[in-house]
Design a protein around this nucleic acid. Structure first.
Lengths: 190, 190
DNA sequence: TCCTTATATGCAACTCGTTGCATAGCAAGC
DNA sequence: GCTTGCTATGCAACGAGTTGCATATAAGGA
């Protein structure tokens, strides 16, 4: 399990509340690890009682107060230990692939609309990634302190992960085109 | 949840026992949906009591008897209904991507060995897929009955799913090379 | 004033998935 | 005779993830 670790990484990149984390899990880090707010609050509680994170009450005006979490030494150590622990290449869950194989026993052409929907979703996500890349990773590297940083690890590594997302979406779009061409070879009905 | 559906597809492709299904989930369908034997036996029980599958005791010689499952009408209907139900594009879980972003707060170069391990695993899987493609999808299309089938849906759809696996592995290998090049730009330690 | 929306946090129940363990038949080798 | 290994099925406990619901502050519009 690695939700704790995804949260640690996100909090190291920038401290924040459970609510803010939940929003980040809808974009950014969420492209590579999903979580709902309920899960995040529950895990944050556990991380707090384990001493992995520190909490600070932050009064706000115009909106409810929040609890801002930041990574404690124990959390940093836990992340480091996880990083040094080998993990197995991910176990996959591709509903769509199962559906495509299953379509052989139903009407294959009925899947076309579904595959097109997925293709659109991937096209949108690709556009979103590319926009983010242009926004955040073009122009000179500037560290958060404003000083020139020739090798800003945080930025470089975020960028390579984003490039992975871009490559994945491009691959998916090409493959879904292949799937559509294959499905189109079958006549309607069976 | 779709383990039921993955099992239905696999049983439609060929009836078999829980044990045999578990082995298929280590290859073939398992490349796109993972499951352990405990999970499979539990779900098969439920599917049986729901009338989705039929069971037949098959005595064997030289080994324990087995229960052979095959898809019942209710199961076929359930699969069909699932196929017509739109699903959301998958939620992703990429430990490695989280690790790479986390490495910015530790020693980035310490991840190199781990990334190389993953690269090897993907290279092996690619080789495995390519061998399977050569074995099963070259030469003339021949249906199970031995007759020429100009449009064998089952075979065509299995092939396009396999091509997806191949494209995925190729993309991953290229990306991991990119990751390795990025990590190499950081000196040892920090 | 009421309704909606956004911020912000949380509980409870349930399902799904993983891990560890248990059992049993039979073959092959030491 | 004993151990190892493969086939074959299963239980129990736990941990992770999902779904539905609940609560509270406050801004903005109908």
């Amino acid at each position: 399990m690695a939700l704790e670790h995804a949260i640690l990484v996100s909090l190291l990149e920038k401290p924040g509340s459970g609510y803010e984390l939940a929003r980040r899990f809808e974009r950014s880090i969420g492209y590579f690890w999903t979580a709902t707010h309920q899960q995040i609050y529950r895990v944050l509680k556990r991380m707090e009682s384990d001493g992995w994170v520190d909490v600070r009450d932050v009064p706000q005006q115009g909106r409810p107060d929040k609890k801002e979490y930041s990574v404690a030494d124990l959390g940093r150590a836990a992340l480091s230990s996880w990083l040094h622990d080998p993990i197995e290449p991910e176990s996959v869950r591709h509903d769509l692939a199962v559906k495509i194989r299953g379509a052989a026993f139903d009407d294959p052409t009925a899947l076309i609309r579904e595959v097109e929907r997925h293709r659109l979703a991937h096209r949108d996500r690709l556009a979103h990634y590319l926009a983010g890349e242009t926004r955040d990773f073009t122009g000179p590297a500037v560290s958060t302190a404003g000083a020139k940083a020739p090798l800003d690890a945080e930025r470089e590594l975020q960028h390579v992960v984003l490039r992975g997302g871009i490559a994945y979406e491009r691959m998916m779009i090409e493959w879904l085109d292949d799937v559509l061409a294959t499905l189109a070879r079958f006549g309607p009905g069976r």
